[in-house]
Design a binder for these strands. Structure first.
Lengths: 118, 118
DNA sequence: ATGTCGCGTTCTTTGTAGGGCATAAGGCTA
DNA sequence: TAGCCTTATGCCCTACAAAGAACGCGACAT
């Protein structure tokens, strides 16, 4: 069975979708585009930005550095230049651990609820 | 031979001395004092700040984070809270390596000069 | 089928709150 | 006279947000 066109075609996200995913304003994404040359998505004929999953990984890295770690934009930029690819791996690990942590917290709550109920 | 009084007494630096050592304005040091509770030196009767070598280590850590790594002040503050002591060790290592690097660069220059001279 | 109304999303350009200090004023002390 | 103090104020960028225009799309009438 051959690929349908839509299967190979989409894979792109709009700026609004990316903004919603990270809960930020589209204007922030556009601004970071002027600050980080790594974050330059394709554009449609019409001029709309088209984000691939890789583009989103890059955005996630910047978001982590600037919003979660407290880097200035120049600080984050320098770090990206040096350690761009390695950085992604690290952040993946961090975010996996964050999920584990959240899971354990809810587990604890449930356990507490049970032990109190008796 | 007993300690002389001045040997155990001084060990303090004035704000001007610290400022000169890092090539920053005294106003910056006073400002950071309001931002980082770790950076609160003793004061003399007269009200002058008295910096111990440990105080200077703390200042160096902040300087490294804010001026060399590109952290925002809140970002640096959070990091200090979590990793304050460990951070100092790391920065010591980094600065030792920086000195080694400089040494090797001058070595290379001299070697180049010799090889050209023949 | 087609005009058009309205609404949501995107675009680029322009405006701005506040972060990060520096400076000014006034005064103390060696 | 130089260096330190406190407090108030000034000020320049940083890091975005808002404004304003254009486009796309479904609904609804023609």
């Amino acid at each position: 069975m051959p690929y349908k066109e839509r299967d190979i075609e989409k894979q792109y996200f709009t700026i609004g979708e990316v903004a919603a995913q990270f809960n930020v304003a589209p204007s922030l994404i556009r601004f970071w585009e002027t600050e980080f040359e790594e974050l330059r998505p394709r554009k449609s004929k019409k001029g709309n930005r088209l984000y691939t999953p890789q583009d989103i990984d890059i955005f996630r890295t910047i978001y982590h550095l600037v919003k979660e770690r407290g880097y200035t934009i120049p600080g984050a930029r320098d770090l990206m230049k040096q350690k761009g690819p390695q950085l992604k791996e690290k952040i993946d690990v961090i975010q996996s651990l964050e999920k584990v942590r959240k899971f354990m917290v809810t587990m604890k709550k449930e356990l507490d609820a049970i032990s109190k109920a008796q």
